[in-house]
Amino acid sequence: MIKLLWAMDENNLIGNDNRLPWHLKAELQHFKTTTIGQTILFGRLTYEGIGTPLPNRKTLVLTTQQNYVVNHPDVKIVNDLKGIISFYQKNLTEDIYICGGKKIYEATLPYADELIISYIKGIYVGDTYFPTFDLTEFTLIKSIKFEQFVIKYYKRKEHN
């Protein structure tokens, strides 16, 4: 299954200089809990914004740079997004969590089986917004409220 996971403010802001515009401990804990032991995919700039491999996860870093290298056993550099999408569409027992940035979200939204969105309360300052998408293609399956944000889980509607 292909799952997109992100946090955005009330204006759909998701980033500022390849970092999160906010620091919410509970939201970071949600990200960690959701992705621990999973495969996650970042674009190169988002990965570099984090600055270090995230522990206990298999990380794929998508880049067009053919000679890009990260020397870490849990990090794999990939250049073929179509191949990754195809693998996870066919492999129903394995999940991949798409974790940004904007270009990666744009490219993978049409293939998303599930969306996990943290709606951050308030308006922040930043430079990167989540691409426009159609939530009517998804069904809300669960919602969890926190003081500073709400996590909503969506599943793609079945096509008849």
Rank of each mutant, 00 (worst) to 15 (best):
L115N: 05
K102N: 02
C99Y: 11
G122M: 11
K102T: 00
G100F: 06
D113R: 11
V125M: 11
L109C: 08
E106Q: 15
K103R: 15
I116L: 14
D113Q: 12
I98E: 13
T108E: 04
G100D: 03
Y124K: 06
Y111N: 00
G101S: 01
K102S: 06
Y111V: 02
K121N: 13
K102R: 15
T108G: 08
D113M: 10
Y105K: 02
D127R: 09
L115D: 06
I98F: 15
L115V: 06
G122T: 12
I98A: 14
L109W: 02
L115Y: 07
D127C: 08
E106G: 10
I104N: 00
C99D: 07
G101I: 02
I98G: 03
Y119H: 15
G126Q: 03
I98R: 04
A107H: 03
L109Y: 03
I117R: 06
K103M: 14
A107G: 10
A107D: 13
I98P: 13
K121I: 08
I98V: 15
D113P: 07
G122I: 10
A112S: 06
G126I: 02
E114I: 05
I123M: 10
S118Y: 11
Y111H: 07
G101M: 01
Y124E: 06
I123E: 14
G122Y: 13
G122S: 10
Y119L: 10
I116R: 10
I123Y: 09
A107M: 11
I120E: 07
Y111L: 00
L109P: 02
V125N: 14
G126H: 09
I117E: 11
D113L: 09
E106F: 07
C99M: 15
C99Q: 06
Y119M: 08
G101F: 00
A112M: 06
S118E: 08
Y105I: 01
I120F: 13
G122P: 11
I120Q: 04
I104W: 01
Y119G: 06
K102M: 04
I120M: 13
K102P: 02
T108H: 04
I116G: 05
I98Y: 15
I117Y: 12
A112Q: 05
K103T: 14
D127K: 09
K102Y: 10
E114N: 12
K121Y: 14
I120K: 05
D127S: 10
Y111F: 08
E106D: 10
G101T: 01
